[in-house]
Design a protein around this nucleic acid. Structure first.
Lengths: 228, 228
DNA sequence: GCAAATATGATAGTAATACTATTATTTTTG
DNA sequence: CAAAAATAATAGTATTACTATCATATTTGC
């Protein structure tokens, strides 16, 4: 998979940037270092000025790639969900059994991203941490409807749609497929956050993974046996 | 219930304010108008200066009540969860059947807050909207561990704990009670958000309420019949 | 009823943020 | 090698998120 991804580009909405950061060395450094910097200091404290200092470049140069840090966050998280979608499709495509397929999907969605896959300038582990800690800030805004109309959340919506389809494949009678899919994708992030900061609010820990909880949750609510 | 609440004060952590806003007319106006203003313009655009203009008071006076707008958000959302906890306990206390009790809890947690109960200076409908749109911003910060240690999230944690206890009462064998409780409390907010902004990601609508989804979800995963 | 205490208001000031604009310099490319 | 494109440097603006100080209004305790 790593080798394959090396030759594939995750395509994000082209209105999210002014100039495609994939097309230059500076652009890649902006994206790569913004991930580690946001992960280090949090999105609120992060500024283009600090990023410029970090990469030995100028604030004004970064503004030529991204309008503002909100668009950068949308870019980074879109990239993440595109990457996740790719991994999801790749891992489930050849599975014919719908239960096994759904199980694999939960696995991919909820597994902790452990390693920087080093296939690119992007540190997926840090990006996963950013998505856990910052993703909801990208849509909890007054501009969400306008930005949604522009298609800025298309990849995320497509991903949730795929999960929904897998749910319906496994259990065509189920009446809440969209809600179960969105609850899973969002809930997985939330459980990872709780493990780190509110352990009393989660049953997950070093030994129990979010995967275990969500597998049980989905299979129970779909009235399926988990021993697929 | 409204009459009872009229004589009860929702108690929030006293480090969340510099001066208790309940003790003065100005304080109540700060709290009351901040709710409608944040609801109108979103938490990012909201400033103490704008609030001062709105209530015909001065920015500096507001700073005598709250250190900053983050603390104000923690105050407002703590108040909301305290109010919710009160309603939850009040509505479920006299129910002996554990299934019925859990059902009622889901009902209280997920119902749309429709009316300003007018028992106070607080517009609960607007506050509910704030919690849906802004609550996660109160904990998705770099200071979350410090603030959690200080007890700023105590009411929320107690509420989730109560839901967890009700889950265990209804099904003592269930292994993921904390995660199911936190997923429900958080998920309810998320589904309400999706109804408004991403209808394709939810099965809920005008006719299907989040309550229906979560009742089905909890009772299925707890292996209980919903016809309690 | 008045002085002291307290609450509120007005004004000013600061450092940082989130940009925009302009110009200079470097790098790329035809 | 010249022209074009990319990047860097500098300066400037409005707003934010405060702090500090002083003035004025209101409350209260005697």
């Amino acid at each position: 998979m790593q080798n394959l991804l090396k030759n594939l580009k995750v395509v994000v909405h082209d209105k999210l940037y002014l100039k495609d950061p994939e097309t230059s060395d500076l652009g890649k450094r902006i994206v790569g270092e913004s991930i580690t910097l946001i992960d280090d200091m949090g999105f609120e404290c992060f500024t283009f000025k600090k990023l410029g200092d970090r990469i030995g470049s100028n604030e004004s140069s970064i503004y030529r790639y991204f309008e503002n840090k909100h668009k950068l966050l949308l870019y980074l998280t879109s990239w993440y969900w595109g990457w996740m979608e790719y991994r999801l499709v790749f891992a489930t495509n050849n599975i014919s059994d719908s239960k096994e397929k759904l199980k694999k999907a939960i696995d991919i969605l909820s597994e902790e991203v452990k390693e920087d896959s080093t296939y690119s300038h992007i540190d997926e582990k840090a990006l996963n941490a950013i998505v856990i800690n910052e993703y909801s800030k990208s849509y909890l805004t007054k501009e969400v409807d306008k930005e949604n109309k522009e298609g800025f959340f298309a990849i995320y919506k497509r991903l949730v749609g795929r999960v929904k389809d897998m749910i319906l494949e496994a259990q065509p009678d189920y009446g809440f497929a969209a809600s179960l899919a969105s609850t899973t994708v969002e809930g997985v992030l939330h459980q990872h956050f709780l493990i780190q900061h509110f352990p009393s609010l989660t049953s997950c820990s070093k030994t129990v993974a979010p995967k275990d909880f969500f597998t049980d949750l989905l299979f129970s609510s779909l009235n399926l046996e988990t021993d697929a």
